[in-house]
């Protein structure tokens, strides 16, 4: 065991308390301000009210923004699931020249700053495709999101494939199963939970993304983060944005819970 002196332990404990306060006090302030009757976020909160909750749930703009985020997220996740799984299989099952490069290529869209990805795609859409008569429109956003979501699925599926026992598949083949049958009944069930976890991460990443979206969203289309950003950019940001933020904070508990469950699913096997 690591033996630490008492002052060292207390010092470490204080740092941990400081980190936790730093992580949670700001989020708590947002939640509190969602119930603030005043127009602008302030401290201390004096006038508690639910008026912004009513405003948020009757807002057509918010409803549309959520819908856009869900459509883009689902589209990007579907593409990422397919492409990420294909690359993961290629890298796990084969050894070939340029393997490292392929790996780097998958990681690059999130390793490079979002603004670079956003500006690069914006440049392609506006300066090359549009003069050529191709309007990407809404799909521009989905294409952009899918590109940086691939790595999420790739990482999860690859990590699982590396731990699989190849003999199980070989047994299936030896018993006369066709390759497709082996994949469908033997291989896929073994990495299904990693596949789902990767998809969940990809969706969450897409749902939250704003920088690439700023540069690839067609004019007049807001995803939820774009709507929040536009609200924040107003000189007197209405407190309704705190309500949306609170809902996001609460909703963020869901993926944590699901990933914990999926994680347990793995260790129990």
């Amino acid at each position: 065991m690591l033996r630490l002196s008492r002052p060292a332990k207390i010092g470490l404990g204080l740092i941990v308390a400081l980190v936790l306060a730093f992580l949670y006090v700001p989020l708590f302030l947002v939640v509190l301000n969602a119930f603030n009757g005043a127009r602008i976020a302030a401290w201390p909160v004096t006038d508690f009210s639910l008026r912004w909750w009513e405003a948020a749930f009757t807002s057509e703009a918010i409803r549309l923004a959520v819908l856009n985020s869900v459509i883009v997220g689902l589209g990007a996740t579907a593409i990422a699931l397919l492409l990420g799984t294909l690359v993961a299989f290629a890298l796990q099952r084969y050894s070939f020249f340029g393997k490292q490069t392929v790996n780097l290529l998958v990681v690059l869209p999130i390793a490079l700053p979002g603004i670079v990805t956003g500006v690069a795609l914006n440049n392609t859409y506006n300066q090359i495709l549009e003069p050529a008569g191709i309007q990407v429109g809404y799909f521009g956003m989905i294409i952009a999101h899918a590109t940086f979501c691939i790595v999420m699925v790739f990482n999860n599926v690859l990590a699982r494939l590396r731990r699989l026992n190849p003999s199980v598949e070989e047994a299936s083949m030896d018993l006369g199963a066709r390759p497709w049958q082996t994949f469908r009944f033997i291989t896929f069930p073994q990495f299904r939970s990693a596949f789902a976890a990767g998809g969940l991460l990809a969706f969450a990443l897409s749902f939250d993304e704003v920088v690439v979206t700023i540069f690839t969203a067609p004019p007049g289309v807001d995803t939820l983060p774009l709507w929040i950003m536009n609200q924040m950019a107003r000189p007197n940001e209405a407190s309704v944005v705190n309500v949306v933020a609170t809902v996001i904070i609460v909703a963020s508990l869901i993926p944590v819970w699901v990933s914990q469950r999926l994680g347990r699913d793995v260790t129990e096997r």
């Binding site: 992580l23 949670y24 006090v25 700001p26 989020l27 302030l29 947002v30 301000n33 976020a41 401290w43 969450a204 939250d208 993304e209 704003v210 983060p225 929040i228 950003m229 924040m232 944005v241 705190n242 933020a245 996001i248 904070i249 963020s252 508990l253 993926p255 944590v256």
Partner: peptide, 18 residues
């Protein structure tokens, strides 16, 4: 892990409020 999911702009908003 939890704040990782809380949303990028939500956290910027939180720092703004703070």
């Amino acid at each position: 892990t939890l704040p990782l999911w809380a949303g990028y702009l939500v956290k910027i908003l939180a720092m703004r409020v703070t």
